[in-house]
Simulated scan of single mutants.
Amino acid sequence: MTTFTSLPPEITREILQYLPVPTLLAFGLTSKNNHSIQQHSLSSLRLGVFHSRLGGMISLMEATADRSCLHSVQMILPKSECRKKDKVIRNQNLRIANVVEKYTHTLRDLEIACWELQESAAMSLAQLKNLKRLSIRLDHPHTRFSGLDPSFWETAPGSPVWNLFTSKKGEKGKSALGRLQSLNLERAGITDYQLTKILESNPNVRELSLRKCVNLTDKIFKILAEGKVGRKLEVLHFTRCCEVEIDERVLDHIGRLLNLKELSLYGCYRLDSDLVKKLNDEQWHIEDLTLPSTPSSPNQEVQIDPEYK
């Protein structure tokens, strides 16, 4: 009779990938050998660190990834670590770094959710040399915290922390990551230059999603059109990055992304939706297109059904 311990390691790891995280961790506590197997079995992880259970639940509902094998973990900080906004952010990043560093060689698919990215978490993420999909979600507008102004979610200040994804501290010229196929950034203060360097280090990116990355300009479209990533890019989401530079000049660059199958320009209000649709019908032929739309006029009347009571 075949027992669990007699199975080949690769079969064991495949089975363990589908266990809930608490069960997987419990398995790793049964012996040193099982602990080693457990650490090599966690290849996909959705990790959120929040100050309240409600905040974690809402974040999970809004999660971008919807892959059934992605393990989901919501960590709730104790009240003693949540007295001030800066303290919450610092402890979020420390917890993320602590978890990620345990699975440096095994993670292939990672989604993290916190309020702001700092060096401690960024450095641990940069060590994930086998990572293929990375999602960093910093946009949580439904969060309620006494020391947090709602306008916080509408800003994305620039930061040198994004430089850590292209070079390791103390090792000049040595690239970080390197095998990414999908990159998703929400409310990230990344600049054109920083994103370009990340894409140069990860030439196999096929999916690029940028939301509320307001420091990006139209230059990023030109960089994509002229770079190696742009020739292979299949999915591009550039949403709510509403800087004035994003206008009709980017349309020529989009037309040079010949392998695009999915494109979203939602929230780029300086782009004319009719023109974008016409270009797609006549030239681009992108299968899944989300138009920029237009903001509602503040003076627009709202009609109400007279039968409604």
Results as ranks from 00 to 15, higher is better:
residue 109 D to Y: 14
residue 50 F to N: 10
residue 256 R to L: 11
residue 1 M to E: 08
residue 8 P to M: 10
residue 74 Q to R: 06
residue 98 N to F: 02
residue 294 T to F: 02
residue 238 F to D: 03
residue 249 R to H: 13
residue 43 S to H: 14
residue 198 I to W: 04
residue 76 I to P: 03
residue 214 V to P: 00
residue 69 C to Y: 11
residue 139 D to K: 12
residue 188 A to E: 07
residue 139 D to C: 14
residue 170 G to C: 00
residue 293 S to R: 09
residue 306 P to Q: 06
residue 101 E to Y: 00
residue 305 D to R: 12
residue 276 V to P: 14
residue 149 D to S: 07
residue 203 P to D: 15
residue 236 L to Q: 05
residue 41 S to Q: 02
residue 249 R to E: 09
residue 270 R to S: 04
residue 284 W to G: 05
residue 259 N to Y: 02
residue 116 E to Y: 15
residue 68 S to I: 09
residue 282 E to L: 13
residue 16 L to N: 00
residue 144 R to H: 09
residue 42 L to F: 06
residue 212 K to M: 07
residue 122 A to L: 07
residue 303 Q to W: 13
residue 275 L to S: 14
residue 47 L to D: 11
residue 27 F to W: 03
residue 243 E to L: 05
residue 48 G to E: 07
residue 204 N to C: 11
residue 81 E to R: 11
residue 37 I to M: 07
residue 250 V to Q: 00
residue 281 D to V: 03
residue 41 S to N: 05
residue 199 L to M: 15
residue 129 K to D: 10
residue 46 R to P: 00
residue 79 K to H: 11
residue 272 D to F: 02
residue 235 V to K: 11
residue 32 K to C: 04
residue 223 I to D: 08
residue 4 F to Q: 01
residue 267 G to L: 06
residue 159 S to C: 14
residue 185 L to P: 04
residue 223 I to T: 13
residue 41 S to G: 00
residue 6 S to L: 04
